[in-house]
Structure formats: C-alpha cells, structure tokens
Design a protein around this nucleic acid. Structure first.
Lengths: 123, 123
DNA sequence: TACTTCTTTAAGCAAATACTTAAATAATAA
DNA sequence: TTATTATTTAAGTATTTGCTTAAAGAAGTA
C-alpha cells in the first residue's frame, strides 16, 4: 500500500493517519456491505417498505402499492433492490408473493426503526 | 385522505391496510428525516468519513483526503452534504476546519458502527 | 504587499436512480 | 382453452449523484 501524504500541516499526525488507513483497509468489506445496506434503506419508499414488512411480518407488492399509493411496477422494482441486497426473501401463496425480512439483517433495521419511533415520541 | 384500494385479493385485510396507511401518515416526517440520514450514510466514502470523525473525535478535509486517497474537492463536497444534513459541525483553527459529529445524531451512527465492527468480528 | 496553504464553490459530464408505460410470466378460475 | 389476477421485466426518460478541473475565499507567513 503506497501512501501519499499531501497535507503539510504541522498538526498532521502522520502516524495517526497511517493508523486510520490500515484500520479502514482491514474493514473495507464491512464498509462496502454496510453502505450498500444503508443506501437501500436511504430511500423513503424503501424505508417504508422495510418498516411495513418488519411490522406486519410479511407483505405482498400489491398491498404495498395500495398503502404507499404507488404503481405496482415501481414497488416491484424497489423490492427487487431490497431482495438483491439479501435483506428480504419471498414465499409464494398462490398468485401472491409474500416478502419478509431475513433474520441476518433484522438487527440493524430494528435499531433504525427504534430511532424512527424515538423521533416520533420526541416530536 | 382518499383511499384507493386496488387489490382485490380475498386475503387483503382492508382494515390492516388502512391501519398501515394511517401509521405511516403519522410518521411521515420521521421517515423523511431518517431516509435522508441513511442516504447520507449510504455511500461508502461518506460512511468512512463519518466513521473516522466518530473514531477520532474530529477530522479536517485535508487529512480525510489523504486517508481516503481522494481529491480534496471530492471530500469537501461529501462533507457539505453531511453538514447540510445537520450531522456534523465545524470548528476553525487557523486555516484548518475541524468537523465533528453533532451529539443529536451520534446515537444512530454509533449503532451503525457497532454493526460494522460486529461484521468485522464475525468475518 | 505577495505568496503559500486549507478549504469551498462552480461548471461540466458520465453514471446511477426512480419513475413511467407496455409487455411478459405465473398461477388461478371459468 | 381463455380470461383474470399478481407479479416481474424491459425500455424510455428526467432527475440526481459523484466525480473532475478550474476558480475563488480565507487565513497565515515572508
């Protein structure tokens, strides 16, 4: 790993910078994975979809479209992104597909939803 | 609030749908605010910037550019987004601007970073 | 004053995003 | 089989994003 330190400030603690770099390097995959998850949740529609799925246990695209007053294809494409990120899985019952949270990812989203409801209480 | 329920499935519990809609409506501002926060953190570069600021207490654009091996303007523009979202504030020391987390927003990010480090441990 | 350093801002552009409409699957019912 | 319903996929498009380079502020130094 080649290092190019351009900052010439006297205060710049180069050891600290090198330390930060190696820490980040060792966690690079985690930052990739986490920023991907957060970018999925960082859309108002998708955050609501995730909240509804978490609250209700499972949800179908049709009901989500009704609740969020959006077109079914728009919902379906959001669901696809969430599913591709490995956050939800589907179960088929006849014509209907029910989506639910994967247990691996529930923890983070629960803490996010807790924050949302905290805002609600304070406001 | 006019409701248009297009789903004709026998299983569709309309009372449940109405309930979901009113819950979301009462929390609409929270979803806006939270999805905004998550979209800020949902970028690998910004997530690393936030992590570094949280770990080190404060950070200047110059050092962040060095650590992340990116141009200073690119970093500055990311910082602007984070600052505009009200997540960080700046303190000037001579020519250098030091950015630090606002205490209002630390809780959510701490839980996110805890999740990141958890991934680290498991992996 | 002029010069350097740290930082932000502006303009330009390629890529990604989030919708729309239309078409294609998949399962059920007549 | 045909028709209906739930869902996905594809193509098109306007907007947003994240960088680049160049220019402009802001503060310290000679």
């Amino acid at each position: 790993m080649k290092l190019e330190i351009t900052c010439t400030r006297a205060e710049a603690n180069h050891k600290q910078l090198l330390n930060c770099m190696s820490t980040l390097a060792s966690m690079d995959i985690n930052f990739k994975k986490m920023s991907k998850l957060l970018s999925i949740a960082g859309n108002e529609v998708r955050l609501k979809i995730l909240y509804l799925i978490e609250e209700e246990g499972e949800m179908c695209p049709c009901d989500l479209a009704d609740i969020l007053k959006m077109s079914v294809p728009a919902i379906s494409q959001h669901i696809r992104k969430i599913k591709d990120a490995g956050i939800i899985t589907s179960r088929r019952d006849g014509q209907t597909l029910y989506y639910s949270l994967n247990s691996d990812e529930t923890m983070l989203f629960e803490s996010i939803f807790k924050s949302i409801e905290l805002i609600k209480k304070i406001a």
